[in-house]
Amino acid sequence: MTAGHQGGCSNARTAPTEFRQRAVELARLGDKPVAALARDLGISESCLRFWKRRSRQDPK
Rank of each mutant, 00 (worst) to 15 (best):
M1G: 15
M1H: 14
T2K: 11
T2Q: 13
T2Y: 12
G4Q: 11
G4C: 03
G4I: 10
H5A: 08
Q6T: 11
G7W: 08
G7H: 06
G8M: 03
S10F: 10
S10Q: 12
N11C: 10
N11L: 10
A12L: 09
A12I: 01
R13G: 09
R13N: 14
R13P: 01
R13M: 12
P16N: 08
E18A: 15
F19M: 11
F19D: 11
F19K: 09
F19A: 10
R20E: 12
R20W: 03
Q21H: 14
Q21R: 15
Q21G: 09
Q21N: 14
Q21Y: 09
R22C: 09
A23I: 08
V24E: 05
E25M: 11
L26W: 07
A27F: 05
R28C: 10
R28Y: 06
L29D: 12
L29V: 13
G30D: 02
D31P: 00
D31Q: 10
D31K: 10
P33A: 09
V34W: 02
V34F: 01
A35Y: 05
A35N: 10
A36C: 01
A36E: 15
L37G: 05
L41V: 07
G42K: 01
I43G: 03
I43L: 03
I43K: 03
S44Q: 04
S44H: 00
S44F: 02
E45P: 01
E45D: 13
E45L: 00
E45S: 07
E45R: 14
S46I: 00
C47R: 04
C47F: 01
L48D: 02
L48S: 03
R49C: 04
W51Y: 06
W51F: 07
W51K: 06
W51I: 02
K52A: 06
R53A: 05
R53P: 00
R53I: 01
R54Y: 11
R54P: 00
S55N: 02
R56P: 00
R56N: 06
R56T: 09
R56V: 11
Q57Y: 06
Q57M: 10
D58G: 00
D58V: 07
P59M: 05
P59N: 06
K60W: 02
K60A: 12
K60E: 13
K60Y: 03
